[in-house]
């Protein structure tokens, strides 16, 4: 981790992404941003607003609506020595690009035995709780975390967003960078000035505790923290780990915490079956089964195609700080 400047400012997650992209465009003219509506409008969330005025439409490219080739063209640019940052407007629309991400980007280095590499960042907003209905609220991480050759990060706090986005941009391999939509403007935090990176693959303990380990990422880290802080009033001590990186994942941080608390609860917004929690559960069962005082528990979305547009259908799909607090209470008392 490069040393950050001693000064800092308060940013939300949108501003953190924006500032980081701006610096990347400013500091390296190999950097290009491509995606739908990233230029003229400056991205649907205004993340790249006015970039096109400063960097020109050759480096801030409004692409046709063609996700497979947004990523495919970025792969070609990366192989040719540019540093593309491709945007998929919403994660819900990444499926046409699955071929290029999994079949091409993730295998470029491997299949050419290192002759060609694919230093590419694919950013995309994901997640629900924003009345986004079936096609503006999905989580996609589980579809990709099975794939060797890819890296996946999903930071939740502005300072982590900046440090991990810088790391993703500097990374010599393809990185899928997931930005939770509901945290975009909701979550504010102190962000160091200047260039710094946070290593991909390192989790962060956001709250110390000794009776239960909660592992999460994205929006649910914030809700888990809210729940864990409320439980402090009841005298319960819960540790909250923010994974930040989903591939690679930080085994050391999880095991160290679980060995201390002897209990593990995983919470994620994505559905349970085959989700990130399954891999974490398996790893902890393999490595530390006899150090546990309770069965591992996963609090995840139900096994339905997506959350609905109508409020009850969204709320039923999503968890909540209250539901998380209940699960935490039960586990501590187990």
């Amino acid at each position: 981790m490069a040393v950050a400047a001693s000064t800092s400012k308060i940013l939300n997650n949108v501003e953190a992404v924006r500032e980081t992209l701006y610096e990347a465009m400013k500091s390296d003219d190999r950097t290009v941003i491509l995606g739908e509506d990233v230029g003229n409008r400056g991205n649907v969330f205004l993340i790249t607003k006015d970039f096109v005025k400063e960097f020109g439409e050759e480096r801030v490219i409004d692409t046709p609506i063609a996700e497979a080739s947004i990523v495919g063209i970025a792969v070609g640019m990366a192989m040719e020595g540019l540093r593309p940052i491709a945007e998929i407007q919403f994660a819900d629309f990444i499926y046409p690009a699955f071929n290029q991400i999994v079949g091409e980007a993730a295998k470029t280095r491997y299949r050419s035995n290192g002759e060609y590499t694919c230093p590419l960042v694919i950013r995309t907003p994901y997640g629900g709780g924003v009345r986004g209905a079936l096609s503006h609220s999905v989580s996609i991480e589980a579809l990709f975390y099975h794939v060797p050759g890819l890296k996946i990060v999903a930071p939740a706090f502005p300072a982590d967003v900046k440090g991990l986005l810088n790391a993703a941009i500097d990374d010599p391999d393809p990185v899928l960078f997931l930005e939770h939509k509901k945290t975009y403007r909701l979550i504010k935090g102190e962000v160091p000035d200047g260039h710094y990176t946070i290593p991909i693959g390192k989790a962060d303990v956001k709250k110390q505790g000794n009776q239960l380990t909660v592992v999460s990422y994205g929006l649910y880290v914030h809700w888990a923290l809210e729940a864990a802080n409320a439980l402090e009033q009841e005298g319960l001590s819960v540790e909250v780990i923010d994974l930040r990186s989903i591939r690679p994942m930080d085994r050391g941080a999880i095991l160290e915490s679980v060995r201390k608390t002897r209990k593990l609860l995983i919470v994620h917004e994505d559905n349970k079956f085959g989700g990130i929690g399954a891999e974490i559960s398996a790893m902890v069962a393999e490595e530390a089964l006899f150090e546990l005082d309770a069965p591992i528990r996963r609090l995840c979305a139900p096994d339905v195609p997506a959350m609905g547009y109508a409020l009850p259908l969204e709320e039923e799909y999503m968890s909540s700080p209250a539901e998380m607090a209940d699960a935490m209470r039960e586990m501590v008392r187990f």
Binding site: I73, V75, G76, M77, A78, M79, G81, L82, P84, Y116
Partner: peptide
Amino acid sequence: YTISSIIAAQTSHAVGAAYAV
């Protein structure tokens, strides 16, 4: 350029390379 066996996937890489040029 390195290619896979995935039909037509290389054409967008070629376009990306041409964009860089």
